[in-house]
């Protein structure tokens, strides 16, 4: 069905995709399956087994962060989507506001807040509480993920919820649904595409982050991202192992995404409001 003009117009994008997406992927795959002398090997992949705890931790923390983001963003997005037009834009701008600040800076700010003699502990100290160990914990890492990636959950949820007409919610109430039942039987199914998008947009950066874990998690909570970074930039320089890790991470992400999409497909049909 694609006509000639459309095909020609598509050429630059195809070139772009080949140069910046397909080619690097091939290189990663090539590195992952070769050793220093360029010989084919699966040692890189098989040696990843010893890092299983790091992988498990990454998946676990990313999952927790994603769930927290979802739980926070869902009611908030719903409330915003029911506001008047001007209020909606204001709220969305407020949510976007922190994103205009540099990511490193934002995370750095949390360091100074969470430190043992940071702002929060000093404040609690005024009441004779603490100090609490907050920095260099898994909790701090999750906090950093939630704080940085929450907007990526809110935006897709909000944009799909604005499409849910008030009258549909009223219809559910009219038929005897309380707010809880309305949420489960109407809002969630209708918001499903936004939910899966939001989950993807939070889970993927969370599972591959290295700055957040480095700054807020200390040395004891390194994640896949840190491992990979070390293979390329650290003194353990080993791009072959690093590529193998990146490849495995990609497979994990793809698996998670296909699970999430499973929920989507059925709901999507006839969704056009």
């Amino acid at each position: 069905m694609i006509n000639k003009k459309a095909r020609i117009a598509g050429v630059p994008y195809v070139i772009w995709m080949v140069v910046f997406i397909v080619a690097p992927l091939c290189m990663v795959a090539w590195y992952a399956f070769t050793d220093k002398s360029g010989q084919f090997t699966i040692d890189n992949i098989s040696s990843i087994g010893q890092y299983a705890p790091v992988f498990a931790r990454s998946i676990w923390l990313a999952l927790i962060a994603t769930v927290i983001c979802l739980l926070l963003a869902f009611p908030l997005s719903y409330l915003i989507s029911r506001m008047s037009g001007a209020r909606q834009s204001l709220m969305i701008m407020l949510i976007m506001l922190p994103m205009w600040m540099n990511f490193l800076l934002r995370t750095y700010a949390w360091m100074t807040l969470l430190e043992n003699n940071g702002l929060i502990n000093r404040f609690l100290g005024l009441f004779g509480l603490g100090p609490f160990q907050m920095i260099n914990t898994q909790g701090a890492v999750v906090l950093g993920m939630v704080y940085n990636y929450l907007p990526f959950m809110i935006l897709p949820l909000y944009s799909i919820m604005t499409k849910i007409d008030d009258s549909i919610i009223n219809a559910a109430k009219d038929l005897g649904a309380n707010m809880w039942q309305v949420t489960w039987r109407v809002i969630i199914p209708l918001a499903m595409p936004g939910i899966t998008t939001g989950i993807t947009m939070v889970f993927v950066p969370s599972i591959s982050t290295f700055i957040i874990s480095r700054m807020l998690g200390g040395g004891g909570n390194i994640l896949i991202g840190d491992l990979i970074e070390m293979q390329f930039l650290g003194n353990t320089y080993n791009p072959h192992l690093g590529s193998a890790m990146a490849l495995v991470l990609m497979v994990i992400v793809l698996l998670c995404m296909s699970i999430a999409n499973q929920f989507d497909d059925e709901e999507m049909e006839g969704m056009l409001l």
Binding site: A171, A172, G270, L272
Partner: peptide, 14 residues
């Protein structure tokens, strides 16, 4: 004990 037929039907698209 009231039910409504809404101005734009408001059926559940899912």
């Amino acid at each position: 004990e009231v039910n409504t037929v809404f101005q734009r039907y408001a059926l559940f698209p899912h």
